[in-house]
């Protein structure tokens, strides 16, 4: 996926300005940056949730806007933070929605197998008949990830997947992200606030400041004192654990 000169304005205020980058296939890419830097907006535009004002998003052989929405749903899945379901929906029914782009609401044997796999992959078997609104935040997030897995797309976009999760569930979530990439061969793009999760679990980091890309490099080239201080305007110390750079800030 190749993004060129992406722009977005809200009420005359430019929130995303001339953003261009190419998403590396089969890797984990984290978008980081201060609040209001435009990373979620970029994510929204890549996933067609937000309309762009200008720029091209070239996906596979054509621009994103020329894709049939349903066909795109078989290639690219997005999970946002707004998942407030008011209806009575069981985990299994939610996961089954992942097959909607393929078979509508009538499931085939293939669909059922994919749903079973997704539920097993996220270890949700014992919850599968529970209602979504009766689950804890961590379990609910896992159910949504299972739905994305059932959707069986090459690209998976996650908007702040660790939001509202405690450390235990958040680090589990990040390990799942890594597995999606390493075991299932997916390209994962995340918006993250936790720099260290981004540093530890991703391959590439794209840092945004004021609607522009400040740095788009491999993890080691972004997570260093100078770059981070420049992006966040806070003092950083870098330590290394298991060969990965981690930042300390206060």
């Amino acid at each position: 996926m190749k993004i060129t000169n992406l722009k977005k304005k809200y009420d005359g205020k430019t929130v995303v300005d001339s953003v261009s980058f190419t998403i590396p296939r089969g890797k984990v890419l984290s978008l980081i940056g201060p609040n209001g830097a435009g990373k979620s907006t970029v994510m929204g535009m890549i996933s067609r949730l937000i309309a762009r004002d200008a720029g091209d998003i070239h996906f596979e052989d054509k621009d994103l806007s020329h894709w049939n929405s349903k066909e795109l749903a078989k290639k690219l899945a997005i999970l946002t933070q707004h998942n407030n379901v008011q209806m009575k929906l069981t985990v299994r029914e939610l996961v089954a929605f992942g097959r909607f782009p393929y078979s509508g609401s009538r499931l085939t044997a293939e669909d059922v197998r994919m749903i079973d796999k997704a539920i097993a992959y996220m270890e949700l078997q014992e919850f599968e008949d529970r209602f979504i609104d009766e689950l804890s935040g961590g379990q609910r997030q896992r159910a949504y990830i299972a739905m994305v897995i059932a959707q069986d797309t090459e690209y998976v976009l996650l908007d702040e997947p660790t939001n509202n999760l405690d450390i235990y569930h958040a680090s589990n979530m990040m390990r799942t992200v890594r597995r999606l990439c390493d075991e299932l061969g997916k390209t994962v793009i995340l918006v993250l606030h936790e720099i260290n999760y981004a540093a530890f679990y991703s391959d590439y980091i794209c840092a945004f400041v004021d609607g522009k890309i400040a740095k788009f490099e491999k993890v080691e080239d972004v997570i260093n004192k100078e770059t981070l201080s420049e992006i966040y305007k806070v003092d950083f110390e870098i330590i290394h654990i298991n060969g990965k750079p981690l930042s300390v800030y206060y």
Binding site: S47, R48, L49, N68, S69, K70, E71, L72, A73, K74, A77, I78, L79, T80, H82, N83, N84, V85, Q86, M87, L89, F97, G98, F100, P101, G104, S105, Q151
Partner: peptide
Amino acid sequence: LQLLDVITLGKDQAVNLGVD
């Protein structure tokens, strides 16, 4: 009417699943 079940998931999810 057949899309109603998906609409219930909210706008983001419905668009993600390919619904206009």
